[in-house]
């Protein structure tokens, strides 16, 4: 298959199958994910939505043995090409995890981690400040940059992790249920942050919270498992349409069940 380059799409996924060892987790995924917008991935647990997300920066293969068929392109380049440099890919595709996972070092060192790994020359202080500012946490931490990141609250830690990702200037930010460990107020701040970041990069967020998907995203993908418990993409489209006029019965059941 020839990959057509479309500037408006961040990801193009074609006939993607995902296997953990011999167990298939995703079957025949085809989707375009638009750039400079927020795409939400919803679906019942075990439907493969996290697996899908982890295949977009190839972090899944760091955890266990996996096999992927088909093609996933990022801005026209196949990311499963054997020649792909994983560090380069992951630099361009940041990731925020379910539970905040700051490194056991200072706030400053957490943000400076990526630039240091890549040997970036220049004013590190300014880069740290701008990243923390973009992640809307600068004012809260500017006086204690040298203290341990583990002293921050859960919500602050999660925003710090976002700042840490932004410091290497990624094109895409993957978020794996970033608010599931946070309280409602902290959740709200992350959602505002997502809204603000949308103009600068492509955000793909997995969430189990329907309201959240409705509030933050422009596009939504609904994943579900088939009768053999293999995950598949059931429906995709504009968030508004998915939520208010779903075409597929399963989508409708899931959404109404969740809202009801």
């Amino acid at each position: 298959m020839s990959s057509t380059t479309t500037t408006s799409n961040a990801y193009q996924v074609r006939n993607m199958n995902f296997f953990y060892g011999t167990r298939q987790a995703l079957d025949g995924i085809n989707i375009d994910i638009p750039a400079q917008s927020v795409t939400a991935i919803i679906g019942p647990s075990g439907c493969g939505k996290s697996t899908f997300l982890k295949s977009l920066n190839r972090i899944a293969e760091a955890e266990t043995k996996v096999r992927i068929d088909g093609q996933i392109s990022l801005f026209g380049q196949n990311i499963y090409d054997p020649k792909v440099n994983l560090t380069q890919l992951r630099r361009r595709v940041g990731m925020v995890f379910q539970r905040p996972n700051p490194f056991p070092m200072s706030i400053y060192d957490n943000v400076a981690y990526g630039p240091r790994v890549f040997g970036t020359k220049g004013n590190l202080d300014a880069l740290v400040e701008s990243s923390l500012t973009k992640a809307a946490i600068w004012n809260e931490v500017k006086d204690k940059l040298r203290t341990s990141a583990q002293g921050l609250s859960g919500g602050q830690q999660q925003r710090l992790c976002i700042a840490r990702s932004l410091a290497v200037n990624p094109d895409v930010l993957l978020m794996d249920e970033p608010c599931s460990a946070l309280d409602p107020i902290a959740t709200l701040r992350i959602e505002e942050l997502i809204e603000n970041l949308r103009t600068q990069l492509t955000i793909i967020i997995v969430t189990h919270n329907m309201q959240q998907a409705g509030r933050v995203s422009q596009n939504t993908l609904f994943f579900n498992t088939d009768e053999s418990r293999i995950g598949q993409l059931v429906e995709s489209g504009l968030t508004k349409e998915i939520f208010f006029s779903p075409k597929d019965k399963r989508t409708e059941d899931y959404i109404t069940g969740r809202f009801g």
Partner: peptide, 27 residues
């Protein structure tokens, strides 16, 4: 050491040994 620290470092584009030296061993 929690797997999540390791993953966070890899997801930022660090190599395996950069992760070991900068995150795992200090932790």
């Amino acid at each position: 050491i929690p797997k999540s620290l390791r993953n966070a470092s890899l997801a930022l584009g660090a190599t395996r040994w950069e992760t070991i030296f900068r995150v795992m061993l200090p932790a």
